[in-house]
Design a binder for these strands. Structure first.
Length: 424
RNA sequence: GGAGAAUUGGCAGAGUGGUCGAAUGCGGCAGUCUUGAAAACUGUUGAGGGUCACACCUCCGGGGGUUCGAAUCCCUCAUUCUCCGCCA
């Protein structure tokens, strides 16, 4: 959520940013927001004046009662009763106006960074880096879902039976490989200075609002109506919400956290060949990195996160590329996002395995995540997060790119974790 | 699940209807003293709205109510603790 004061003072920048995101009715949206803000402040001022008066009268009444001047007190009482009526109305108006403003603010996405390319769809994302050799596969090479079946390491049908589509069962070396990947990622992240945390997999409404999944993506999360809790779509939600309503000290920065969690996504509206196998699941595993940074350091931090993920993909020997997402494809809350994609050789397409973003103070504003700056003023912090890494598509990439006629050859870096070199 | 107690500023903890945004202690920050530090002493120290700046307004777990006036009384929800029950 943007700060109203920021919108008020930087209308031009905001409109330019919204244009880059192809937001329709941006002019109107901003105009309505500023109007609501102005109205709200006007009502607030009026209400404050009335409250000030009635506070004063109440004190006087107290004095009169003490000094035994009951009649004087009674007269003032009548006055305050009138004020009370007025202030009640104004309070209601204020509440309504504040809600209106809040809802408008929820509709305004983050302002993209200068370097975010224009564009309306994923076609317009900018490839900023690519490395790793795309292997030439042997004859009869298979897509990962066939390999999974052949080696009996992932059972999609069994998941169907137990739960439904998109909830696979990993078996034998498949299950072990999952565990290996999780441990490997966590070890890489902690070695890079991220503190490991284990967090709840269900979150309350306030947390959903804090990181921006609510109200924007309500339908994408599984919801337990009985207790009003949401299954997390990413560890970003519980981990970042650790810092909701927190005022940090300047020397608390940088804060670096990593967490493994399963992720649950309803993926309403997804269909077709692109959701086959591990490409798109309702439940999947992911290791996440989250950073809380001083505003002047957040882009440095973003670069370091990108480099960190790079290092892992290099070590796994997977061909990958990095995209800078365009205005039309970047997430609602993000100011700058880099997507990592691994080439899936047997499917002949790129699969997103990580998304690393700087949210600047957009999340922090909702979270009320602040710090005391060196002038003693509270200021919003910057939040960032990224996958490091998401398992299913890494697994898909590994299975497809590392397949040989003799079986799947596990990358060297993973062998100490998996305990085996081949799946055959 | 049942019974009881509690929830106050960074922490501890006072405050049962007006003079309370809130005593006191600790911690933090600044200063005096010191070669420096410690100790001692002095001052300062919650958040949000509002204002050019003041004024002023709101906030004592969340929400609602009583009252001219609520941290204080009532209702409700949440959380924590103690005892009992059940249990990985």
């Amino acid at each position: 959520m943007l700060q109203v004061a920021f919108i008020r003072e930087n209308k031009g920048i905001v409109l330019k940013g919204l244009a880059k995101r192809n937001v329709k009715n941006a002019e109107e949206l901003i105009a309505n927001t500023l109007q609501a803000d102005e109205d709200r402040r006007a009502i607030q001022t009026e209400l404050d004046a009335i409250l000030a008066e009635s506070n004063k009268l109440s004190k006087d009444i107290g004095q009169f009662f003490k000094s035994g001047e009951r009649q004087k007190a009674e007269i003032l009482k009548q006055k305050t009763i009138q004020l009370k009526e007025k202030s009640k109305n104004l309070t209601e108006n204020l509440q309504a106006k504040a809600n209106e403003l809040q809802e408008l603010l929820y509709l305004i996405p983050n302002i993209p960074n200068e370097i975010v390319p224009g564009g309306s769809s994923e076609e317009d994302n900018l490839t900023v880096f690519q490395e790793g050799e795309i292997p030439t596969l042997h004859k009869g090479a298979l897509p990962h879902w066939e390999l999974a079946k052949k080696y009996d390491i992932i059972d999609f049908e069994l998941g169907n039976k137990i739960t439904g589509a998109g909830f696979p069962v990993y078996k034998g070396k498949g299950a072990k490989l999952q565990r290996a990947l999780i441990n490997y990622f966590l070890d890489k992240n902690t070695a890079a200075g991220y503190d490991e945390v284990q967090v709840p997999h269900l979150v309350n409404e306030a947390s959903g609002f804090g990181t921006g999944q609510l109200p924007d993506k309500e339908g994408q999360m599984y919801h337990d109506a009985q207790d009003n809790l949401y299954l997390i779509p990413t560890a970003e939600v519980p981990v970042t919400n650790i810092f909701r309503d927190v005022i940090l000290k300047e020397n608390d920065f940088p804060i670096c956290k990593t967490a493994y969690t399963p992720c649950f996504r309803r993926e309403a509206g997804s269909y077709g060949a692109h959701v086959r196998g591990l490409n798109r699941l309702h439940q999947f595993d992911k290791v996440e990195i989250v950073r809380i940074e001083h505003p002047t350091k957040s882009y440095e931090a973003l670069d370091s996160m990108v480099n960190h993920v790079k290092g892992i993909l290099q070590e796994l020997n997977l061909p990958y590329r990095i995209l800078r997402l365009c205005g039309g494809d970047i997430g609602f809350t993000s100011a700058l996002t880099y997507d990592f994609e691994v080439f899936s050789t047997a499917q002949d397409r790129w699969l997103e395995v990580s998304s690393v973003s700087n949210f600047e103070n957009f999340q922090a504003n909702r979270l009320k995540l602040r710090f005391k700056n060196n002038k003693g003023k509270t200021e919003l912090a910057h939040t960032l997060n990224g996958s490091s890494l998401a398992l299913p598509r890494i697994l898909a990439g590994l299975l497809e790119n590392c397949q040989t006629p003799e079986g799947i050859k596990i990358p060297k870096a993973l062998v100490p974790y998996s305990g085996f070199e081949f799946i055959n």
